[in-house]
Design a protein around this nucleic acid. Structure first.
Lengths: 257, 257
DNA sequence: CGCTGGATTGACTCGGATCAAGTCGAGTGG
DNA sequence: CCACTCGACTTGATCCGAGTCAATCCAGCG
């Protein structure tokens, strides 16, 4: 199976054979981690850059009241911030969802990869901009979307991102997130997430079962969510309008069917 | 008056006299912009890096329904993303609040500044990490804080950030944001913001009048907000505990009084 | 085969939105 | 200098989406 990290970066910039090799070299010795294991905790001194090769993780923060807020999901191919090593301490924690294989790239090696290989630098920077766009999209969701739209929007996001690393088979893809995690990510209660998922199931747009989602009507889901994938900054996007519904030739997955 | 951009970056890393000079050179010809003017719009091809020298701006997005979500406030000293030029198009817009002076640094010059001056690169990267931390903090606020906490938290954030560029005089600082903007930033209605501000006034923690805030009891405000400034990554922070209330020698402003 | 953690459903409550009047204050022009 | 105007701020009454509390169901697992 292809290296998901390489696959994802290729979606952002052209990489030479040398660059691909360098990336593979840098990630040949991943660490195997158990589920629900903290990669790093708030307050820790950051070290190497993490690259998810297999399995999922999420960034989160626990409030004084004990509630948790998840701020991002990391899927295979994703990595945490490039310059993380510059910080004195982490401002949030990162935890695995499922068991995972994670490469740790020391800061010096990361710097070398970036300065020697223009394509890698370019792809990494765009990836980072896409991550920031995603954070902003979450803020928009939490601030101005109803809970139905919010859930639909997250599913669209994960679907498109999953598509970029060939995670889906047909319209379904593996989603190892419990309803509790979804609730903590979307700022809702598990009870309410459950009701919304039922509602989405009834519209026929999508269906979530333990461990996997089935997007039955991508266009309908995107329309419910008001989803526009522009913030993910994939290459080859629709050349034309901004309708709120993604479309166009070779869009990253949520084309109207 | 000092260059706010330089002043802010000095809060992140030591800069040599040469580096300070280089930054001042790069920002000596700012453009003067009117209030409510879009610096750049969603869908535009990004160009130079913007640096706010005077006045405020905000990043925002308009949803299909017509509602607006503000995702960040830019105050003097702040700049927009370093590598923005790599993107094919903007995923959000940026608008001035008040009239402003904004420097535009071409991408090539920015690259030169960063590669020739290690201190500048370092400070800019930390600034970017702090911006990302701020986005995550907003997600936490919207997802898991009550509206009272949310408003208090934003005020704490702006107070600390303002402190870094000497924006405050005593416990007050100029805040050119209307209640409508605050509402669009915090995911609430103007009506509700207004009631919350009244509530905060009654607790004696702070007071917001047209154009300025007065933080009467910083510690109380921080306590209401559950504010921990760690995500802003200022240097010289408390060496000790994580209590949810910032403290310690020479913290960035919200020390308990 | 019972235990445990997630998923599901119902009944009730409440925070914040919505709708609807005002009020205040800074310009603007006569 | 004052009346007019327009946008922003305030306040009250009502409504509804989502939270809370509480059972119950279900699947995987020791």
């Amino acid at each position: 199976m292809a290296n998901r990290f390489v696959q994802k970066l290729q979606g952002y910039a052209d990489l030479t054979a040398t660059e691909i090799l360098a990336l593979e070299q840098a990630t040949i010795h991943p660490r195997k981690l158990a589920a629900k294991h903290d990669l790093i905790r708030e307050g820790d001194r950051p070290g190497p850059v993490f690259v998810m090769l297999e399995g999922w993780a999420f960034r989160y923060k626990i409030l004084p009241s004990g509630t948790r807020q998840i701020m991002a999901f990391l899927m295979p191919g994703d990595c945490c911030d490039l310059h993380i090593g510059l910080l004195a301490e982490m401002d949030h924690s990162i935890q695995t969802v499922s068991s995972a294989r994670v490469a740790m790239i020391p800061r010096a090696e990361m710097d070398r990869l970036m300065s020697e290989h223009g394509g890698i630098a370019r792809a990494m920077y765009i990836a980072q901009l896409a991550d920031e766009g995603t954070l902003r999209a979450w803020i928009v969701s939490m601030g101005r979307r109803s809970s139905l739209e919010r859930v639909a929007h997250l599913m669209c996001e994960l679907y498109v991102r999953g598509h970029a690393i060939s995670l889906e088979s047909g319209n379904a893809f593996a989603l190892p997130l419990s309803q509790i995690m979804l609730a903590d990510a979307l700022g809702m209660t598990p009870v309410h997430i459950n009701r919304i998922l039922k509602q989405l199931r009834l519209t026929g747009a999508m269906q979530l079962r333990r461990g996997s989602v089935n997007i039955l009507a991508p266009a309908k889901l995107a329309q419910i969510a008001g989803f526009d994938e522009n913030y993910l900054h994939r290459r080859m996007r629709r050349p034309s309008s901004r309708t709120g519904i993604s479309s166009g030739p070779e869009s990253s997955g949520l084309k109207d069917l």
